[in-house]
């Protein structure tokens, strides 16, 4: 019954999904934190940029962003992402698109995390003479991160699911292979769906449970 699975690289496809998720998660954590810094910074122009970026990118469909990386960034602007191999190029483009999109959610989570840090913390830091960068980097963000683990876990899981959009530019991740499998083995529709769905449940459910537990563990007791 499961013979046909050996014809397709299902595990390999899920490995691509995992890789997409990890690279994009790392990238959007960094870029999202920078964006959050912009949004609370003393420089009005940076704040304006942060707000504009969030409002534009969040309201654009991810599919459009990822297709845009291929048709716009790569094929029109000629960005090769440092490789000449199409498959890796598409992979990197998709990762970039996922980072651009996911970072807006990371940014908003961190920003709300910053709000949970008691006013006195920042005030005390300023009283000690720390500048904005130090207040944010040394005092506020470390505390903020502890309270945003749960929302960030949600973002990570959403990201895992969003990697399927990469199939729009031909990245051979799980949904791409699912499409191929169903096209060729239309009589095994339920089986294929079951396998792929199970794969995603296996990827997302433990992430949620583990990070939910971590979130409780590290939460600042107030």
């Amino acid at each position: 019954m499961f013979d046909f699975l050996s014809k397709y690289d299902v595990l390999g496809a899920f490995w691509v999904t995992v890789q997409l998720t990890l690279y994009a998660a790392l990238g959007s954590l960094i870029w999202g934190t920078i964006l959050a810094g912009f949004r609370v910074s003393p420089v009005p122009l940076l704040r304006a940029f942060g707000t504009a970026y969030i409002n534009i990118v969040r309201n654009t469909p991810l599919t459009l962003i990822i297709v845009g990386t291929l048709l716009g960034l790569s094929q029109t602007l000629g960005v090769t992402m440092g490789t000449n191999v199409l498959d890796s190029q598409n992979f990197r483009l998709a990762t970039l698109g996922l980072i651009a999109y996911t970072s807006t959610f990371v940014c908003e989570s961190i920003r709300s995390g910053i709000n949970t840090v008691p006013v006195g913390q920042a005030e005390a830091a300023r009283a000690l003479g720390l500048g904005f960068g130090q207040v944010l980097g040394v005092i506020v963000l470390p505390q903020a991160f502890r309270s945003v683990i749960a929302p960030l876990a949600s973002v990570l899981i959403a990201l895992t699911k969003n990697t399927t959009v990469a199939s729009a530019i031909g990245v051979a991740e799980a949904s791409f292979v699912m499409n191929n499998m169903i096209e060729n083995e239309s009589d095994k529709l339920f089986l294929v769906f079951g396998v792929v769905a199970l794969g995603f449940v296996v990827l997302t459910l433990p992430t949620g449970l583990i990070l939910g537990w971590v979130a409780k563990k590290v939460a600042v007791k107030r």
Partner: peptide
């Protein structure tokens, strides 16, 4: 041969014109 998979022919033309394909 390297394959670029897309969803429609019009997406191919952009890349063909610019030299990406």
């Amino acid at each position: 041969v390297q394959l670029q998979n897309v969803k429609g022919y019009s997406e191919c033309l952009t890349g063909l014109e610019s030299g990406a394909i």
